[in-house]
Design a protein around this nucleic acid. Sequence first.
DNA 1: TTGATCGACAACCATCTGGTTTAGTATACC
DNA 2: GGTATACTAAACCAGATGGTTGTCGATCAA
Lengths: 119, 119
Amino acid sequence: MVVDQSPRLDRVFHALAHPARRAIIRQLSGGERNLSELASPLRMTFPAATKHVRVLERADLVRRRVVGRQHLCRLRAAPLRDATLWTEQFRRNWEARFRALDELLDEMKSEEQPRSRRR
Amino acid sequence: MVVDQSPRLDRVFHALAHPARRAIIRQLSGGERNLSELASPLRMTFPAATKHVRVLERADLVRRRVVGRQHLCRLRAAPLRDATLWTEQFRRNWEARFRALDELLDEMKSEEQPRSRRR
DNA sequence: TTGATCGACAACCATCTGGTTTAGTATACC
DNA sequence: GGTATACTAAACCAGATGGTTGTCGATCAA
């Protein structure tokens, strides 16, 4: 494989590369939102905001369902996982430098579920 | 914070969004390479390839040192860590969907260092 | 010193991005 | 019915992106 051809990853990383789209993701991590709710905190017009949502949809980071006149959006976790796994694969070769990351992730894991340690 | 203003993350995710640049990163995960080595497997001209390297440098994913007429590039892990941490922060809200990721990461961790389990 | 190699730089081009404004459709509400 | 609300779609624009070709400088090696 000469070049890492993966249009899916292209779209995911590209979607994450804009602050407005990361802000949308952050909002959606709190649950479903309609387009007006997503657009209002962004410093741009409504059509511009919906374009960003569309970019997130193309990356499959967001799915929408239509309820009446509202378009409710929700976050999809799988592409975030793919992005993480891509970066994580280099940890093998860069272990020393990544040691701090391991500890951070372990902290996050234990903060989030202090009761049930898996494995 | 209205919008997730972080030009550093912008640059990192943008750098990761092109297959040629991911291929360069993959090559560099095997150790230092000069520009010719990085460019040759890519299906494009040399100047195009060096532009991609420059994008990676702007994201601080790559640093170069000049030795004679060769420019040796090496990977920097910190920005990859930042990217991972950004996506990981949503795992709290999407735990069930991310459970599979935890297991995969644990597998990678144990494959890579089967002897010393930290913590 | 000559030639080959490694790389920078500039100019150019097509396409994509990220924003706007304007106009239009469909649903909900009084 | 009439009006506000939620959203789409199209046209337009400036600037960024991703590629090319051509020219040049510096270093290594014979």
